[in-house]
Design a protein around this nucleic acid. Structure first.
Ligand SMILES: NC(=O)c1ccc[n+]([C@@H]2O[C@H](COP(=O)([O-])OP(=O)(O)OC[C@H]3O[C@@H](n4cnc5c(N)ncnc54)[C@H](O)[C@@H]3O)[C@@H](O)[C@H]2O)c1
Ligand SMILES: NC(=O)c1ccc[n+]([C@@H]2O[C@H](COP(=O)([O-])OP(=O)(O)OC[C@H]3O[C@@H](n4cnc5c(N)ncnc54)[C@H](O)[C@@H]3O)[C@@H](O)[C@H]2O)c1
Lengths: 210, 210
DNA sequence: ATAACATTGTTATTTTTGTAACAAAAAGAA
DNA sequence: TTCTTTTTGTTACAAAAATAACAATGTTAT
C-alpha cells in the first residue's frame, strides 16, 4: 500500500517547508511556481520537489508549474488534521515564552491552547495570549481541552517528570527541547532537538571546510 | 580515503549527543559505559553506537565497554577545533536571549563572544554575560574577535540582510532560526531549523498513529 | 504546421544511512 | 583448564533517501 500514511519522514518535513514558502508566495501575489523555484528557495534538488509532490498525488501544469494555492491546500490535507490539534507548552521560561510568542496566529490547525509552570509568578497569568496553569493541573486541563501535543521547555532535571505527566494525561506527541533523552514510547511520538548539537555540527563543518 | 573529514553527517550529530551523555556520566561518577547503555539513552541501536565509535578510531574494552572520559575527549578531538571557535548571536529578542542564557558556560571550545541588535535599548548592554553591539559594528567586531559562526535570530524580514552582513564580515558558518531560507553558499556552511516544521511533523505522526 | 523548448511525472540508479550477523576476545564459572 | 557469557569491532546486507535519466506533453516561436 502506498497511501499518504506511508510518506517518508523527510518528505513530511519538506512538505511543511514547501507550505511555508507557498504561503509566502501567496502573500506576495505569486500564484504559480516551478519545481526548480521551490527547490532553490529551500536549497534542495528540483527532482526531489517533484517527487515529493508526486507522492502526495498532486498535479502541476506543464509549463506553468504548480498552482500555489492548490498545492498549499493539498499539503494541508496531508499534514493537518481536519479538526486541528491543540498544543501545550510545559515550562514558561526563556525558551517557552519565545515559542509561545512566536506561534501566536501562525497556524490555524495547530494552536497552543495552554502553558504550564510551577512558578507562582507565572501561574494563572496570560502570557502571549496563552493561559498559564499550575503544573499540577496538567492532567485535568489537557483532558478537558483535548490537547494532543506537548512541548517541553522545563529545566533539564524536570524534563523526565514533565514527560511522564504528559503521558499520564494522555498526550500523543512530544517535542522535547531539553538536552535530556526522554522515554515515552510507545505512549507518544517523540521528537527531540538540541541546539548545542546543531551548533557543534556547524562548528565541525566550518572547521573541515576546504 | 576514510579520514575523519569524511564522517557521515548523521554520525557527527550523534557524536555531539554521545558527548552530552558522557559528560553527564562523568558528573555522576560513571567511568565506563557499554554501547547498549549509550544507545538506550539516545533511543538508538547499539550497533550504530559501536559503528560510530569505530569510525572515529576509538577503542573500547571488552567486557568493560568504553572509557567515558577517553571517549568524550576523543569526540572532542573530532568535533572541536583546537583553538576553539567564537560564535555571535544576531538579534537579541526572545529567542536570541534564550540561546545566550542557555549557552553560558556549556562548552569551552564554543563560546558566544558577541551579540548584535539594532534596538538602542539593547546596544552596549551586557546580556547573559555577553556584550551586545550595534548591528552596524558587526563587521568590525567579528573580524577583531575572530568570530567564525553566526546564529541568526532577527525578525524574518531582517534575516537576509543579517546573513549578508555576516558573510561580508567573513563568517564561516551560520545557524539560522528564522523561517527564511538564506543564500550564503559558498561563503558559509548553513544549517537551518524551523520550529514550526518540527511541530507539524509531530502533529502529522500523531494524526497517523495506529 | 512544425520545430525547439521547458517543464512535469515517473522509473532507474546511486548514495547514504541503519541494521543484522558474527568472529574475536576477555572475564568469570565450573 | 575448559566452557559459557558478554561485549566489542567489522563486514555484509537492507532500507531509506537523494539524484539522474528520460519520456511525455503543452507552449511558444518560426
Ligand atoms: N534557552 C534556550 O535557548 C534553550 C536552548 C536549548 C535548550 N534549552 C532547554 O530548554 C529548557 C528551558 O530553557 P530556558 O532557557 O527556557 O529555561 P528557564 O529556566 O528560563 O525556564 C524553565 C521554566 O520551567 C519552569 N519549571 C520548572 N519546573 C517545572 C515543572 N516541573 N513543570 C513546569 N514548569 C517548570 C520554571 O519555572 C521556568 O519558568 C532547558 O532544559 C534548557 O536546557 C534551552
Ligand atoms: N521565538 C521563537 O521560539 C522562535 C522560534 C522559531 C523561530 N523564531 C524566529 O526567530 C526570530 C526571532 O524571534 P524572536 O521571537 O526572538 O523575535 P523578537 O522580535 O523577540 O527578536 C528580534 C530581535 O532582533 C532585533 N533586530 C531587528 N532587526 C535587526 C537587525 N537588522 N540586526 C540585528 N538585530 C535586529 C530586534 O531588535 C529584536 O531584539 C524570528 O525570525 C522568528 O521567526 C523564533
Amino acid at each position: 500500500m502506498n497511501s499518504v500514511k506511508n510518506l517518508p519522514e523527510k518528505t513530511i518535513e519538506r512538505l511543511s517547508q514547501y507550505r511555508r514558502v507557498l504561503l509566502d508566495c501567496l502573500r506576495q501575489g505569486k500564484y504559480n511556481i516551478y519545481s526548480h523555484e521551490l527547490a532553490s528557495l529551500l536549497h534542495i534538488n528540483p527532482v526531489q520537489v517533484r517527487r515529493d509532490i508526486m507522492l502526495i498525488g498532486h498535479n502541476g501544469t506543464l509549463r506553468k508549474g504548480y498552482d500555489v494555492k492548490r498545492l498549499s491546500d493539498m499539503i494541508g490535507t496531508i499534514i493537518d488534521s481536519k479538526e486541528g490539534q491543540k498544543v501545550a507548552v510545559v515550562g514558561v521560561g526563556n525558551l517557552g515564552r519565545a515559542i509561545m510568542t512566536y506561534f501566536q496566529g501562525k497556524r490555524t490547525k495547530l494552536v497552543i491552547a495552554a502553558a504550564f509552570d510551577t512558578d507562582p509568578a507565572k501561574v494563572n497569568r496570560v502570557i502571549a495570549g496563552i493561559r498559564c496553569y499550575a503544573a499540577s493541573e496538567m492532567e485535568e486541563v489537557i483532558r478537558k481541552e483535548g490537547i494532543t501535543i506537548g512541548v517541553i521547555t522545563v529545566p533539564p532535571d524536570k524534563a523526565a517528570e514533565s514527560a511522564e505527566k504528559l503521558v499520564m494525561a494522555g498526550i500523543r506527541g512530544i517535542l522535547n527541547y531539553t538536552p535530556v533523552a526522554l522515554n515515552v514510547e510507545p505512549h507518544a511520538y517523540l521528537e527531540e532537538y538540541d541546539m548545542v548539537t546543531s551548533l557543534e555540527k556547524v562548528a565541525f563543518f566550518v572547521k573541515n571546510r576546504s
